[in-house]
Simulated assay, not measured.
Amino acid sequence: MPSPLSSLRVRLADLGDRGRRHSSLLRRVPPLHDLLELAARVGYGARGFVYLSVGCLILLSAVDVVGDAVGTKGALDWLVLRPLGRLWVFLIGLGLAAFVLWRVLQSVFDADHEGVSGHGLRTRMSQGFSGLSYAGLAFAAFSLLVRAPDGDPAQEGVVRSQEQAATVLSLPFGNWLLAGVGLMILGIGVSNVVKAWREDFTEYLACSPRTCRRVAPLARAGHIARGLAYLPLAILVILAGLRSSARDVTSFGSALEAVERQPGGPWILMATALGFVAFGAFSFIEARFRRIRPPRDLKLD
Rank of each mutant, 00 (worst) to 15 (best):
P2H: 14
R9T: 02
V10L: 10
L12C: 12
A13V: 05
G16M: 12
G19N: 13
R20E: 08
H22V: 15
S24G: 14
L25C: 10
L25T: 14
L25R: 06
L26F: 12
L26E: 01
L26C: 06
R28Q: 13
V29T: 01
P30M: 08
D34F: 05
L36N: 03
L36S: 08
V42H: 12
F49L: 06
F49P: 00
V50T: 14
S53C: 03
G55S: 06
G55R: 11
L57S: 05
I58E: 00
L59K: 04
L60V: 05
D64T: 07
V65P: 05
D68L: 15
A69E: 01
A69S: 07
G71S: 05
G74D: 12
W78E: 03
L79T: 12
P83C: 02
P83G: 03
G85N: 13
G85D: 07
R86N: 13
L87K: 04
F90P: 11
G93P: 15
G95Q: 10
V100H: 02
W102K: 01
R103C: 12
R103Q: 13
L105M: 07
Q106E: 06
F109W: 10
A111C: 07
D112K: 06
H113T: 02
V116P: 00
S117K: 11
L121D: 00
R124E: 00
M125P: 01
S126T: 12
S126R: 02
G128S: 12
S130I: 07
S130D: 13
F139W: 14
F142E: 09
P149S: 04
D150N: 10
D152Y: 00
A154G: 05
Q155T: 10
G157T: 03
R160E: 01
A165Q: 14
A166N: 14
L169I: 02
F173S: 11
F173Y: 08
G174W: 10
L177V: 09
G180P: 08
G180I: 06
L183V: 15
G189Y: 00
V190I: 15
S191M: 04
V194N: 03
V194E: 14
V194M: 04
A196N: 02
E203Y: 01
Y204W: 10
P209W: 12
R214N: 11
A216V: 05
A216S: 12
A219C: 11
A219E: 01
A221P: 07
G222V: 06
H223F: 15
G227S: 03
L228W: 07
A229H: 07
L231K: 00
L236D: 01
I238P: 12
L239D: 09
A240F: 15
R247F: 07
F252L: 05
G253A: 10
P266L: 06
W267F: 15
L274Y: 08
L274R: 04
G275D: 14
G275V: 13
F276C: 00
F279W: 02
A281V: 10
I285P: 00
E286A: 10
R288N: 04
F289C: 11
R290G: 01
I292E: 09
P294A: 11
D297F: 06
L300Q: 04
